[in-house]
Amino acid sequence: MGPIIKVEHLKKVFQSSAGETAAVDDVNFSIEKGDIFGIIGLSGAGKSTLVRCLNLLERPSSGKVFIGDKNLPDLSEAELRKTRQKIGMIFQHFNLLMQRTVLDNVCFPMEIAGMKKKEARKRALEFLKTVGLEEKARSYPAQLSGGQKQRVAIARVLASDPEILLCDEATSALDPQTTKSILALLKKINQDFGITIVVITHEMSVIQEICSHVAVLDHGKLAESGSVEALFHAPKTEAARRLILNAGSQIKQMHGKRLVRITFSGQSSFEPVIGNVVLLYKTPLNILYADTKNINGKAEGEMILQLPEDRLTADKMVEYFRQEKLGVEELEDVG
């Protein structure tokens, strides 16, 4: 079976008084069924435009958007509406109907699809149970917290029994604790319902928390894509590097001396690498930043080191790290 989403030469140009700007510029990627696919980029990189092209809320200027074997821009309006019912979407600002109860919000997509009210309500309650909000069924959105609103939005998406879920900065308006719980819920939905999820975010931590694959968007262009581990250990492009280092923001202030970022995975975490290197070359080095992250259930470590000023020793140390199969990157150009 082919990929569930396939984007070919996608381009979206906006006209403004200042001329044309390409928000999305010749982007290609494909997403396999059951993946949690992250699209990361700084604000203004074109992520939101890109994800809105996936359900044609934004009509591409050119290029193809395949959902299964259907190219969305080719569909008639009626066919497009039918296909959209299989592509759920959640938003940064939740976009719930404020004048409807929580239960009726979840009923909404089923109403649109023409389901009987009684049946819809019964199913809606089930989905509210799934997201842990059945006791709020009679409340109105204004009475809920941000995290609860997003849960209602997720229940509403589930109600249309989608194959794909698009998340447009779905956790950006939430605090870290709530973000974690929403991401956990998304992961659960991915596993229990087999829904393919596309996550748009500017936060590396969100990608690391739930995504299996990631694409880096930079000024409308796809800088690189691949597995989240590969991006974490060996980012190939400047754009990716910037996003990863943003995760530890204090690094910005560390430039000057020769800095390297080393990454550990799995078994290499058990070797006392730093101790070994100091003993071996009899020169101290400075640990500026260290962190362990959980990426898809595996512990992945990263460390920013300041190497000795003696160039020869520093080179040997880098060589040693490489032999130990650590990810090594020189950070001199970070500013």
């Binding site: 359900n55 809320l57 497009l80 509406r81 039918k82 296909t83 959209r84 019912q85 592509i87 759920g88 979407m89 938003f91 600002h93 976009n95 719930l96 109907l97 404020m98 004048q99 409807r100 909404f108 997509p109 109403e111 649109i112 699809a113 939005a153 249309s160 698009l166």
Partner: peptide, 23 residues
């Protein structure tokens, strides 16, 4: 945003007018 959410669910123009705009 709410109108877009309804569009993303496949709502047609009539549904959006009655169930979203007027409501």
């Amino acid at each position: 945003g709410v109108i877009e959410a309804a569009m993303s669910m496949g709502a047609n123009t009539t549904s959006i007018i009655w169930k979203v705009l007027l409501a």
